[in-house]
């Protein structure tokens, strides 16, 4: 899942980026409002974590412009402004969540996960595709009773496919939602990682879960 952090306070921006990347998210980050708007307009982020007091353009202005342009990314406002008016203004301008600084990193993670589930209409934090089970909270994966160990990148890919289970997902979509902006990878890497994932998930004697739809992409689920 791909996130954008727009936060001007360097220590916070660095620690959030690090923490979220370690939590398996692809994270783009900037400390400037103008640059943040440019990132958000040009990419399809699953969640944008947005500070309000920013150099360049104010966070609320970014929010307004994104919504005016019809951008559907879920936006979490992360700010030290804690008055009722501030919260109401932020939410009324189209933010999906509002978190006041200082905050617990675990809470931020939980809220980001909740927004992601909302993005893909997944209320249950445990996704089940045939005998494949994915716990979105602990990021653990089982096939039948056997737990499968995945690298963060592999998990990110599987999670995205699982969120859009039974739906054909293009390589571009995968690349946009699983890889960061500055990533050196190209969309061909997707095929490589799908290969890695297949090796770990598909098991002899069990039905195939990851299917290739020629010319269109992949889908996770039973036989088409």
């Amino acid at each position: 899942m791909r996130l954008l952090i727009v936060e001007d306070y360097r220590p916070l921006q660095q620690s959030l980026t690090k923490g979220l990347r370690e939590a398996g998210f692809a994270v783009d980050t900037t400390r400037d409002g103008q640059e943040g708007l440019w990132y958000a307009m040009g990419n399809d982020y699953d969640v944008i974590i947005l500070d309000l007091m920013l150099p360049g353009i104010d966070g609320l202005e970014i929010l307004k412009r994104l919504r005016a342009k019809g951008r559907q990314s879920h936006i979490l406002i992360l700010t030290a402004k804690d008055t009722l008016e501030d919260r109401v203004t932020g939410l009324d301008l189209g933010a999906d969540d509002y978190l006041v600084k200082p905050f617990a990193f675990k809470e931020l993670l939980a809220r980001v996960r909740a927004l992601l589930r909302r993005s893909y209409r997944q209320k249950n934090p445990r996704i089940k595709v045939k005998d494949l089970r994915i716990d979105l909270t602990t990021q653990r994966v089982w096939r039948g009773r056997q737990e499968i160990a995945l690298t963060p990148r592999e998990y990110g890919l599987l999670e995205y496919l699982a969120m859009r289970a039974a739906e054909t997902v293009s390589r571009t979509d995968i690349w946009e939602h699983v890889y960061e902006f500055n990533s050196a990878a190209s969309s061909n890497v997707v095929d490589v990682y799908i290969g890695y994932l297949r090796k770990k998930i598909e098991q002899a004697g069990k039905p195939l879960l990851i299917h290739t739809v020629r010319g269109r992409g992949y889908f996770l689920g039973g036989q088409t």
């Binding site: 916070l12 620690s15 370690e22 030290a80 402004k81 200082p102 905050f103």
Partner: peptide, 17 residues
């Protein structure tokens, strides 16, 4: 409050991560 919260958030987030 704002000016104190921001660095506090920085410290907390840095430590928790």
């Amino acid at each position: 409050a704002h000016e104190l919260r921001t660095p506090l958030a920085g410290i907390r987030s840095t430590i928790e991560v």
